[in-house]
Design a protein around this nucleic acid. Structure first.
Length: 108
DNA sequence: AAGATGACGCCCG
DNA sequence: CCGGGCGCCATCT
């Protein structure tokens, strides 16, 4: 499974009103250390909840209008901020256990 | 193939 | 809290 597919899936699993971090997503996708690749996927893919992906500590790493955009969109989902960071203790989404491959269609 | 870059993460002063 | 440096992985020129 292409790494971007795993990352893509992980990002899509982030529920509304919750957020995650690049590193966490990469890890949840099964690619610890591939935080940068998470960024790549976010940029190339469209229709993803990119706003729910933040930097470590819940900090918005985007600059300029993009940063504002992200902040507003998150607040619109009910996410609260602590200064310039998202209140992670309240909105950090903990990815479910991922044994190996069984992540979506365990089907019989 | 090599060099440079990126919405990163973590350590150190 | 702030600034600086190094490591990671994939992509682009």
């Amino acid at each position: 499974m292409p790494l971007h597919a795993d990352i893509l899936a992980a990002i899509r699993r982030i529920p509304r009103g919750k957020v995650s971090t690049y590193g966490a997503v990469a890890c949840a996708a099964g690619h610890p250390g591939a935080a940068r690749q998470v960024v790549g996927v976010l940029r190339r893919s469209v229709g993803l909840p990119w706003q729910r992906v933040l930097g470590s500590g819940g900090e918005i790493k985007l600059r300029g209008e993009s940063g504002f955009e992200q902040r507003f969109r998150l607040e619109a989902e009910g996410v609260t901020f602590r200064g310039r960071r998202v209140d992670m203790k309240q909105h950090e989404f903990k990815f479910p256990r991922m044994g190996k491959k069984q992540t979506k269609k365990p089907r019989t």
